[in-house]
């Protein structure tokens, strides 16, 4: 319809997409389909036995108290990490959204954790929290005279991986919140101030609602980050322990795949996570198409 499109070059768009499609087909679609197929088999280590078992793997998972506990634990982990992380990030973003000399330096500092890998984040925090030479316990001892068994107590280990995850994701969140804040025109604030609103009211009644598209996008991205990328953090910091306290879904999957050698069972777990991703993607699409509509 649109005359500016190169309609005459019929094959060009397909050629342009072809390289991406080849890579996607072989390295994304095909292995994903394979995961689904594999989840219907019971497998022996080394692939020496492979027995079709229908939905047995799924039934086993949902009747296994360990897996069910891991589901609940992961939900709590995701909720706490996202709400804690977004709240902290939003406050910091508002702080660095001021017109101030040298504000760029602070922004850069706040962005930095974005560039850091989960592995490195885990490594840094496991040092800070270690009971013998770590600094956190030293400060706590100094200030409050308490010693926290960070990585040997289940509850605190759970807090520890939440801290490392929030810290790692903070840079990403702040970048997006700041972009959102800067897209709010100054005139909106000015008119609010003329109407006599105080800072807190402005924050609550103007900033937060106007940021809601950003927040929604960040919630979605943070779900993906916390569910999947926390693997590196957990692997370095706690290996899922103590007593399973930090054994989140992705780590349980890794364990069944690489420690217990139950490929079929691990594949079934991948499929469960895949469904989760699809749900999240669905909401993301709804949001994206809504955004386009507004344009």
């Amino acid at each position: 319809m649109k005359e500016q499109d190169y309609d005459s070059h019929f094959s060009v768009p397909y050629l342009l997409i072809l390289p991406s499609m080849i890579i996607l087909t072989f390295f994304l679609y095909w292995p994903t389909v394979q995961s689904v197929i594999l989840s219907l088999y019971r497998t022996a280590p080394f692939g020496s036995r492979k027995i079709y078992s229908g939905f047995d793997n799924y039934i086993n998972l949902f009747t296994d108290p360990t897996y069910r506990a891991s589901l609940v634990r992961t939900s709590v982990f995701v909720l706490v990490t996202i709400f804690g992380g977004l709240a902290i990030s939003l406050i910091l973003s508002v702080l660095v959204n001021q017109k101030l000399k040298g504000i760029k330096i602070y922004r850069t500092i706040f962005f930095i954790p974005y560039a850091i890998s989960p592995t490195v984040s885990g490594s840094l925090w496991v040092f800070l929290l270690n009971p013998v030479a770590g600094h956190i316990n030293y400060f706590l001892d100094l200030l409050f005279n308490i010693q926290i068994p960070w990585l040997t107590n289940g509850f605190f280990a759970f807090i520890a991986i939440i801290i490392a995850t929030i810290w790692k994701n903070m840079g990403f969140n702040i970048i997006f919140f700041l972009a959102g804040l800067q897209s709010i025109p100054d005139s909106v604030y000015e008119s609010a101030r003329i109407d006599g609103a105080n800072s807190f009211q402005i924050f609550r009644k103007i900033t937060v609602p106007l940021l809601s598209p950003t927040t929604f996008y960040l919630i979605i991205m943070n779900i993906i980050f916390t569910v999947f990328q926390s693997f590196g953090i957990v692997d370095i910091m706690t290996q899922g322990g103590p007593a399973d306290a930090t054994n989140i879904l992705i780590y349980q999957l890794y364990r069944d795949m690489f420690v217990n050698f139950r490929l079929g069972l691990a594949a079934a777990q991948s499929v469960i996570l895949l469904i989760l991703v699809l749900i999240v993607t669905f909401f993301h699409f709804k949001f994206v198409s809504k955004g386009v509509h507004y344009q």
Binding site: N153, G154, G241, P242, A243, V259, N260, F261
Partner: peptide, 18 residues
């Protein structure tokens, strides 16, 4: 399943100590 057994034992110890 010895590697898994070892892990189960370690978890049991942790649960006891906690």
């Amino acid at each position: 399943t010895f590697p898994e057994v070892r892990q189960i034992v370690e978890e049991a110890v942790e649960k006891t100590l906690q």
